[in-house]
Computed example of a mutant assay.
Amino acid sequence: MLAFAPAALLFLVFCVSVLLERRKFSNAVVLGLAVLCALGALLYRLVSSESPSVPYVVGALVALGAVALLVLVCFLFLNGVRMLRKEGRSPSNLLSLLAALAILGVVALLATAAAVRTPVLIGLATAAGGLALYFAFLFLCFVCYAFLYGRLRVRRKADFVVVLGSGLIGGSTVPPLLASRLKRGQAVHARLAKRGGSPVLITSGGQGPDEKLPESHAMADHLVAQGFPAELVEREDRSTNTEENLRFSKAIMEKAKPDYRCVVVTNNYHAFRAALTARRVGIRGQVVGAPTAAYFWPNAMLREFTAILVDYRQSNAAMCVIIVLGGVAAWYAS
């Protein structure tokens, strides 16, 4: 049982950290490390058991991993093609395809290095494989914790519900993606109202260069048309991105009630990163997500993950340098 002690300790740290502050990316990493240590302990127990079935079990796990990788590449490729057909050929819609090509490129480099075994290829393969494992680990941590975060209940009362905006169709019409946020915002507002009080719903979004009116105004009109009380809607119409959505909404809330509590509403794929941003700007509240079309979710999660990597660019750059130096060491050692 001693082999499982690191995993148990890391899981305990994770639980305490979530209780203290659930809006931290380090929670995702600690949870991932706990699972990794648990899997390592299981593998150690399996190998040390000296059972005659060990080679077959290990072989089955390797084959399962190879099949899972093939399925993942096919899924990403097909999703990328579907994104291009449904959403257009913008750079952000290419992420699924690029991820599939990157996986194939790393696998091809590793296979070539194993077959040819020249020092340069060994160094390149070591660096590429290390970077791939590092980013794959972080992405799995992100996806799993984002899924978990989206299911943690918001139990406290709140004074405000903030719905984050997105683009408008034709410069004036609320699209389905934004409509789902507003619907979730109404549901959250109704649940909070049952606990007492009359929370104010803040629609947050400024006017883009191709829009006829601010997003917040179109969102408020949509809510009122659905029967939501107009006197309970506040418009934040200056923001151009998520951080500004939260900063400007925070100013409105602090002015109305300095000791406010709030619930922020966005789409489920965006909820965790919005929560990280909310913590950074000092928002007192949690983030909940609205449903998103299944085909849109994989590419959107890759986009969110890329944005988080940029937010933590210094630590990620340091890790990448260490991994590349490991590749250089493998080159010289060959």
Rank of each mutant, 00 (worst) to 15 (best):
M1A: 08
M1Y: 02
M1L: 05
L2P: 01
A3W: 15
A3N: 10
A3C: 09
A8C: 14
V16R: 13
V18M: 05
L20M: 10
L20Y: 07
F25Y: 13
F25N: 05
V29K: 02
V29P: 00
G32C: 09
A34T: 02
C37D: 10
L39P: 00
A41G: 15
S51P: 02
P55H: 11
P55N: 09
Y56V: 12
G59E: 13
A60I: 13
V67L: 15
A68E: 08
L70E: 07
V71Q: 06
V73Y: 04
F75L: 08
L76K: 09
L76A: 11
L76W: 01
N79W: 00
V81S: 06
R82Q: 13
R85Y: 08
G88I: 08
L94H: 02
L95K: 04
L97S: 09
L98N: 02
A100P: 15
L101K: 06
G105L: 11
T112H: 05
T112S: 12
A113Y: 07
V116S: 03
I122D: 06
G123K: 03
A125C: 11
A127T: 06
A128K: 07
G129L: 06
G129P: 11
G130K: 03
A132K: 00
Y134D: 07
F135W: 10
F135L: 14
L140S: 15
Y145K: 03
F147N: 11
F147C: 10
R153G: 02
K157L: 06
D159W: 00
F160K: 00
V162D: 05
V162S: 04
V163L: 04
G165F: 00
G167R: 12
G167L: 03
G167E: 03
G170C: 03
G170R: 01
G171F: 13
V174Q: 01
P175W: 14
P176D: 10
P176F: 02
L177N: 04
L178G: 10
A179C: 10
S180H: 07
R181N: 14
L182Y: 09
K183S: 12
R184F: 01
R191M: 10
K194L: 15
G196Y: 03
S198A: 15
P199C: 12
G205N: 08
Q207A: 03
G208D: 14
P209Q: 07
D210R: 05
D210E: 14
H217D: 06
M219D: 08
A220V: 04
F228E: 03
D237R: 12
R238M: 08
R238C: 05
R238Q: 13
S239K: 00
S239M: 10
T240H: 06
L246G: 09
P258D: 06
P258F: 10
R261G: 04
C262K: 03
V263G: 05
T266L: 12
Y269C: 04
A271Y: 05
A274H: 02
A278Y: 00
R280T: 05
V281N: 10
V281H: 07
V281M: 06
G282I: 12
G282K: 14
I283Y: 15
Q286K: 08
P291G: 09
A293S: 09
A293Q: 09
Y295E: 02
P298C: 00
R303T: 10
F305C: 04
A307E: 05
I308C: 13
V310H: 05
D311T: 12
Y312M: 05
Y312W: 08
S315I: 12
S315W: 13
S315P: 00
A318G: 15
C320P: 01
C320T: 13
G326I: 02
G326W: 01
G327Q: 10
V328N: 11
A333F: 14
S334T: 08
